[in-house]
Computed example of a mutant assay.
Amino acid sequence: MTFELTWHGHSTWAVTVDDTELLIDPFFDNPKTDTSPEELDPDYLLLTHGHADHIGDVDRYEGATVVATPELAGYLEDNFGHENAVGGMGMNLGGTVECGDAWVTMVRADHSNGIETGYGTSAGMPAGFVISDKKPTQEADADATTFYHAGDTSLHSEMKDVIAPFLEPDAAAVPAGDHFTMGPAQAAVAVDWVDADVAFPMHYDTFPPIEIDTDEFVREVKATGSDAEAVVLDGDERYTLAE
């Protein structure tokens, strides 16, 4: 089983699970990536919420199957022609869908979710995703490989009470840029709560308000007492979880 992660800056991640390519929150207008959107050809397009810095390049991937809330999936269909949303109307928090060789569970994120700058236009609830090469069950599976993308979020107790015990992420990508999401200190607590072995900061340095010293994230992860390895990736750098 191949399970690879590539960070393309901000909250944009390409995830490969065996022969299945997933792309999360495509936004390539950020200073961490040299990748052109056309270089990627995902099978599935996972969208955490409707802010422009998370759906900025969705129009490049009309052939991909959209995984998003019904509200956001409907918006994409109306405005960009996407008609391939999983289930025809998207999915919602707590649901798990089979995406090729991967299983995708939509989980809670605490954030706002207006589409573009229209604060009255809601894309439903914001979300995070847990991607696994095995269907999640209540029985622990040591052979499963699992990646948690927290989306844009603050710290919330479901990380400890739901995501950690039932979805068991091996690796977690958490927003650490502060201002609009968690900063390094709360992001580190999130890493500890989900009990991940590997932790990546994301959603930082894209705009002046979210510029941070990533060494602070590394220090804060250590300060929690977590055993997680804090890994700060370069833009477009690949990390192999399993092969």
Rank of each mutant, 00 (worst) to 15 (best):
P37I: 07
E39L: 03
P42G: 12
L45Q: 01
L46T: 09
D53A: 10
I55C: 01
D57A: 00
D57K: 04
V58Q: 04
T65W: 07
T65D: 08
V67M: 06
V67L: 08
A68W: 11
A68V: 06
T69D: 07
T69W: 05
E71Y: 03
L72Q: 08
E77N: 09
E77S: 15
D78C: 06
D78T: 03
F80A: 03
E83S: 13
E83R: 13
V86L: 07
G90D: 13
T96L: 13
T96Q: 04
V97R: 00
D101A: 06
W103N: 15
V104P: 05
T105E: 08
T105Q: 07
T105L: 08
T105H: 07
H111V: 10
G114Q: 11
G114T: 08
I115W: 14
T117E: 04
Y119R: 08
A123W: 00
G124P: 00
F129P: 11
V130A: 15
S132N: 15
S132Y: 12
K135H: 14
K135Q: 14
E139C: 05
A144T: 14
T146A: 11
Y148G: 15
H149A: 00
A150C: 07
A150S: 08
G151A: 01
G151M: 00
T153F: 03
S154W: 10
S154C: 10
M159Q: 01
I163V: 13
A164H: 02
P165S: 03
F166N: 07
F166T: 06
L167Y: 01
A171F: 08
A173W: 07
V174R: 05
